[in-house]
């Protein structure tokens, strides 16, 4: 399914965080959303996940039962007393709902997903004993179980070591080969250049959208830095689209 961002504006207290953005994301794309701090990357991802309201324009082609969303680790309560297995099996929520219990096949799926992210043997470990990398692996296992056509990843490799990064990238590669749409927010431009075919360079406005090598140019990056630093307390109302 193709995702259309039509003239999307997202705002905090009337100040735009993402301003009049247009883009078309095709099925099977692996898209990196990059840009300086405050460029609106995570805000845009949250809007795609349905977590924030779209102030103007629309996002089409996404609905709640086609998305798997990987939040930033800081949003989790790591002290909650559940095990890796329990965290991972919530990926089956869409199938199991409130009360259905796991059948033998579900068990097999969960164990396989945990093994696939390299956490075999960690099933009954409490999540508060995991390292950042191990927790990220279990969240990837949950995404694996969710088995959705669109995968949204918010800074998946923040504070993650090299080995974990390589393993998880292999997983994303498999999703990519399986024609899933992957949209990730990241700060790591080297990573984007090495792996992500497409890039959206954002600095509140769209600086560039297209194939990564055309977008991540020195000029574009410089422009992105300048744009995101400007913030006008007394900015007038935006007239774009009003006419």
């Amino acid at each position: 399914m193709t995702i259309y961002l039509n003239n999307v504006t997202l705002a905090y207290e009337k100040h735009p965080a993402v301003h009049h953005l247009n883009a078309t994301i095709n099925k099977g794309d692996w898209l990196a959303i990059v840009g300086p701090n405050g460029a609106g990357k995570s805000t845009l991802l949250n809007a795609m996940a349905g977590l924030t309201t779209v102030h103007e324009g629309s996002i089409e082609g996404l609905c709640s039962d086609t998305i798997a969303y990987l939040p930033q680790q800081a949003q989790l309560d790591k002290s909650f007393p559940i095990t890796v297995f329990e965290l991972v099996f919530t990926g089956l929520w869409a199938k199991l709902g409130y009360t259905k219990s796991l059948d033998a096949e579900d068990y097999k799926k969960c164990t396989a997903a945990i093994a696939a992210v390299g956490l075999h043997g960690f099933e009954s470990r409490m999540i508060n004993t995991l390292s950042g990398g191990q927790l990220q692996r279990s969240l990837f296992a949950r995404v694996l179980l969710q088995d959705q056509p669109v995968i949204l990843l918010d800074e998946p490799f923040n504070a993650i070591d090299r080995k974990t990064l390589i393993d998880l990238t292999e997983l994303i590669n498999q999703w990519h080969r399986g024609q899933r749409t992957i949209i990730m927010v990241t700060h790591d431009l080297d990573y984007v250049q090495a792996h992500c075919p497409k890039t959206l360079l954002l600095a509140r406005e769209c600086i560039g959208y297209g194939s990564t090598k055309n977008i991540l140019t020195v000029d574009n990056l410089k422009r992105a830095r300048q744009l995101s630093e400007s913030f006008d307390e007394h900015a007038p109302w935006c007239q774009q689209g009003a006419a």
């Binding site: 709640s64 039962d65 998305i67 969303y69 559940i82 329990e86 869409a94």
Partner: peptide, 18 residues
């Protein structure tokens, strides 16, 4: 019980899925 546990650990998860 199940949604409450999920909500406690990762509040965005259920928000995204319905």
């Amino acid at each position: 019980y199940r949604p409450l546990v999920i909500e406690c650990v990762d509040s965005s998860f259920l928000l995204v899925s319905g």
